[in-house]
Design a protein around this nucleic acid. Structure first.
Length: 533
RNA sequence: GCGGGAGUAGCUUAAUGGUAAAGCUCCAGCCUUCCAAGCUGGUCACGCGGGUUCGAUUCCCGUCUCCCGCUCCA
């Protein structure tokens, strides 16, 4: 079996496990499903929340200068025109009928750079005018630019389909009656509302640059072809931080004026850090985050964008790649966005998004700069460093890294050993922290000591299960499969019927080592909590 | 969306132009039961729609979904 086949097998196993045990399944199953949409079941929702909580604590709660936002999932057309998505997400695609490849029309091979853009505009107009057949379009384009474009891979002429427009955003009619309705879009990324709300959040939270706004929420993209389970969906959750810092121009002026630099809080870059220093800072923070999250290092890679692939406004960008079952794929993007987004919204809305940096102004004046000049220098659009992670992708990464199969001895007739499926999830992420399993059903039931312990753990804030069905071995395996780190067994010793020594104690079994320790019932909750932190 | 493959219980696999079989899982019960043991009983399927036919899970068409390539970048 090749590596590709083996890894696809892993994906199939994950999909099966997720469906069987209620982690994730396809949306609208009874109606044969809807491509690119998934529902998170009882265990999935817990795992998701645990991942999200970890991110939120790491990025927001433990920091003085990052605040949260939870914006609407839909926004007016103007916002998405300003962000560039109405234009950029509007790809015009053609298929090569000979090679079966698909291309954006502006990425065919042209004799001059301008012609690519001309061709795209020509195609958009042609589609808007009602379209036609292939001959009509390609002959029209030839008349327009003087020749037929070529296949960029082969460099040869080919037969292409008519251009088709793919809008990757979900367009919505807002307002119940047709005439009064205005056009809106489901947000294609969670960061745009952060930029739009920048001023209200800043003023309301009394934050000053440098500071960040974080948001976790749903985003929607009408993907041409959703693929690879949770990797590419049409509805997905993002965990994004937009962090706003002083522009380099101001920092240069502070330095030139001889203003003394001050250190930043919590090991952050100081008052005269460049925007690239901040980019490096967040990149390092994100690396540290992944180390703590527990994803294996050899499955993670940081890949910088080569300069020629950067968006025109971006100073630097890199992606965090993870080796998913289907191959390496992007988990997170870390981008230096310049002041592009705030500038766009300032232009399109006609409102001011500039920030007045009083500290900078006073420092410049104190160092002898003219007051008006200092004020001008201290009034700016902050530069934004973005970190943007896919929650569903993290979910898939965590699951695929945790999935393992053991061989264990078995009592099954005719078999010596059995395969044990175990999710080696970090206890912090495990959807179920512990399971209370009375050794025999006679030791269980409502009103039993075992059940009381289960209730106590729930009240202590630990998501736990109680299971007294069938054999103890089977119940252990069921918990292994969902990654429950600890199984608590209430046995006949616990009752005291075999002597006082072990009375009121239970065994706690470790998911990974299968080893058991005896712990007094009264200490179980604390025992678990200690190991979760 | 285009091209290639696929769709029978939760899973793995049967059979059939005449109302679908099994193993595992699952559920209930028995068992002083510590790693999917054993025993008894039970639930659950021809993806959906249309056509051909006396009759379709089986043949045909469409559709939906899944897998592989083109494309994608959270």
């Amino acid at each position: 079996m090749g590596q590709q086949a083996a890894s696809m097998e892993l994906m199939d196993k994950l999909v099966g496990l997720c469906k069987r045990r209620g982690f994730v399944f396809q949306n609208s199953e009874p109606y044969s499903g809807l491509s690119g949409f998934f529902d998170y079941g009882p265990l999935g929702v817990e795992l998701n929340r645990n991942i999200e909580k970890f991110w939120w604590d790491y990025m927001v709660r433990l920091r003085e200068n990052v605040v949260g936002l939870d914006s609407a999932c839909i926004g007016p057309e103007a916002v998405w025109v300003a962000s560039g998505h109405v234009g950029a997400f509007n790809d015009v695609l053609v298929d090569d009928k000979n090679s079966k490849e698909r291309f954006r029309i502006d990425q065919l091979k042209y004799q001059a750079e301008d012609d690519a853009e001309k061709a795209e505009i020509f195609a958009l107009n042609w589609i808007a005018a009602g379209g036609g057949d292939e001959t009509h379009f390609w002959d029209g384009l030839k008349e327009h630019i003087g020749y037929y474009p070529l296949n960029p891979n082969s460099g040869k002429a080919s037969r292409f389909t008519i251009p088709r427009q793919f809008n990757l955003m979900f367009r919505q009619q807002i307002g119940a009656t047709g005439e009064a309705a205005q056009t809106g879009y489901l947000r294609a990324e969670t960061c745009q509302p952060i930029f739009v709300d920048f001023e209200l959040v800043r003023v309301g939270s009394r934050q000053q640059v440098p500071f960040g706004i974080a948001q976790v929420g749903k985003a929607f993209r009408n993907e041409i072809n959703p693929r690879n389970f949770l990797f590419r969906c049409r509805e997905f959750s993002q965990m994004e931080l937009e962090f706003f810092v002083r522009p380099d121009e101001l920092v240069e002026k502070l330095k030139a004026a001889g203003v003394a630099a001050e250190d930043g809080a919590d090991g952050q870059p100081g008052t005269q850090a460049s925007t690239m220093d901040w980019y490096d800072y967040w990149l390092a923070q994100r690396k540290a985050y992944y180390a703590e999250l527990g994803l294996p290092e050899d499955k993670l890679r940081i890949v910088p964008h080569p300069p020629e692939k950067l968006a025109h406004y971006a100073r630097a960008a890199c992606d965090v790649y993870f080796e998913f079952p289907h191959g390496w794929g992007e988990l997170e993007g870390i981008h230096h966005r310049g002041d592009y987004d705030l500038k766009q919204h300032q232009q399109h809305s006609g409102k001011s998004f500039t920030y007045f940096d009083m500290d900078a102004e006073q420092a410049l004046i104190a160092s002898g700069m003219d007051k008006a000049e200092a004020r001008a220098a201290a009034t700016y659009l902050p530069v934004c460093i973005e970190t943007s992670v896919g929650l569903g992708r993290t979910f898939l990464a965590v699951l695929s890294a945790a999935y393992a199969e053991d061989t264990q001895e078995t009592k099954h007739e005719g078999k010596d050993e059995d395969i044990r499926i175990v999710l080696r999830l970090h206890p912090r992420l495990a959807p179920v922290k512990a399971a209370v399993l009375p050794l025999s059903k006679k030791l269980g039931g409502p009103g039993s000591e075992a059940y009381r312990l289960y209730r106590e753990l729930l009240r202590a804030g630990l998501n736990c299960e109680y299971d007294d069905a069938g054999s103890i071995g089977k119940r252990y395996r069921r918990q292994d499969e969902i990654g429950t780190p600890w199984c608590i067994c209430y046995d006949f010793e616990s009752t005291g019927e075999k002597g006082d020594e072990l009375k009121d104690t239970v065994t706690i079994r470790d998911r990974d080592t299968l080893e058991q320790v005896r712990v007094p019932i009264s200490e179980v909750a604390a025992w678990i909590q200690k190991r979760l932190n």
